[in-house]
Amino acid sequence: MLTASAADLAVLRGRAGAAEDVFVADMPGAGQRLRVYDEYVDEIGRTEEPDYLAVSVVGPRNRVAKWVKGFPLA
């Protein structure tokens, strides 16, 4: 597990989300704050830039490693 600031996670999410052969799973702050799924969907729909707490990225190792280079281990 790597650690990164919210700004770094947003950059990583942008790069990974733009790649065709990469799977991205987001964990925005709303996922921990809200307990009702409809409220979560509503908040995410209204938010232009979610406050990412975590981002999972699965794809070609060389590309993902390049994106996360410099992120410290947790």
Results as ranks from 00 to 15, higher is better:
68 V>H: 04
46 R>Y: 02
45 G>H: 10
16 A>L: 11
70 G>H: 08
14 G>Q: 13
47 T>W: 09
40 Y>L: 15
45 G>A: 11
48 E>L: 08
31 G>R: 05
62 N>S: 10
33 R>D: 15
45 G>D: 08
20 E>D: 14
36 V>N: 09
37 Y>A: 15
54 A>H: 01
20 E>K: 13
13 R>H: 13
13 R>A: 13
30 A>E: 15
25 A>E: 13
6 A>N: 04
35 R>S: 14
21 D>K: 03
68 V>S: 10
41 V>M: 09
56 S>P: 00
48 E>Y: 02
73 L>F: 08
43 E>F: 04
56 S>N: 04
11 V>D: 14
10 A>Y: 03
67 W>E: 03
16 A>R: 00
46 R>L: 02
17 G>P: 05
73 L>V: 12
22 V>H: 04
66 K>V: 04
33 R>Y: 11
74 A>L: 11
23 F>N: 06
69 K>I: 00
68 V>Y: 06
28 P>L: 02
20 E>V: 11
39 E>W: 10
35 R>P: 00
6 A>Y: 02
21 D>F: 02
71 F>A: 03
14 G>M: 09
65 A>P: 06
16 A>G: 08
51 D>W: 07
1 M>K: 10
50 P>A: 10
53 L>G: 09
71 F>C: 05
69 K>L: 01
21 D>P: 00
17 G>A: 12
45 G>Q: 05
74 A>P: 09
